Amino acid sequence: MGLSDIAAGVEVTTEQCKRSIAAVDATNDSLTDRLAAFADELPCRVEEATTLIEAYADGASVGQSSRTAGLAPITGAKTLHLLGEPIAATTPMDRTIVREWLNAECTRTEALSLSNVGETEFALAAFVETHDPIPGAREALESVFALDSSPTVSKRDALAETMSDTSELF
C-alpha cells in the first residue's frame, strides 16, 4: 500500500481559520485593581501586595520588598509565590526531601537534618510544595514583570551590567 492509496478519498471540507495570539492589555487598570480579584486568596491585604510587587519589580530582594510593604519576609515570599513568581528557598534536592516529608516518608526532624536549611526556609519550601499559584494571577501581573514594558528600556539595557565588553577578554 502506497501513500497515494492511503490518501485516496481524503479531501478538505473546510478552510482553516486564521490563528493568532490573543493580546489582552489590562494595563488601564491599576495594579491594586488587578490584585483585588485575588484578595481572598492572598496572605496579606491588596495594598500591601501592590507595594510588595512594585518594589520587587523594581529589583529589590524578596526580603527588602516585604519590609517596604510592611510584611514579614516569609509572608512576602508566600504572596509572590501565590501570584505566580517562582520562589525557591531551597535547592532541588532539598525540595525532594520536603516532598518526602509531606508524603510521610520521613519525619520532620529527619527532613530538616537532611535538607540542611533553617526552619523558615523549610516552612517556605513546604508552603510552595503544598500551594499552587493562583490561576490567572501571573497573567494579571505580566505587564509589571515585563522587562520591555517601558519603551525606553530594552532587555539589553536592563541586563547591561551583567555583560562584558570584548576588550575585557584581553
Rank of each mutant, 00 (worst) to 15 (best):
L112E: 11
D157F: 12
T13G: 03
A126V: 14
T68H: 09
S164G: 12
S61C: 06
V12F: 07
L159T: 13
R99E: 11
I134N: 01
A88I: 09
T120Y: 03
F38M: 01
F170H: 11
A36D: 12
F127G: 04
E161G: 00
F170N: 12
A26L: 15
L83R: 07
S167M: 09
V98E: 09
P43V: 09
E110K: 08
A123E: 14
L114H: 11
G2A: 03
E15Y: 11
E85K: 15
A72S: 09
P133S: 10
D29A: 13
L3F: 08
R108Y: 06
S30L: 02
T152P: 00
A146S: 14
A26S: 15
A137Y: 06
I134H: 01
D148T: 15
V153D: 02
G84R: 08
E47P: 01
S164T: 15
S61M: 07
D94M: 12
G59F: 07
N116E: 15
T90Y: 05
L112D: 05
G136E: 01
R138P: 02
P135Q: 12
P135E: 11
I87N: 01
T166R: 11
A7K: 14
H131F: 02
L141P: 06
L169C: 05
P86Q: 09
P135G: 03
I134M: 00
R108N: 02
A137I: 09
I74S: 11
D40F: 04
F38N: 03
S113K: 09
A39D: 12
G136D: 02
S154F: 07
T91D: 09
P43S: 01
H81C: 04
P135K: 13
K155C: 03
L3N: 08
I134L: 03
N28F: 10
A55Y: 05
E119C: 01
T109G: 00
A104I: 15
E139F: 05
T152F: 12
E119I: 14
G70M: 04
A39N: 07
T96W: 03
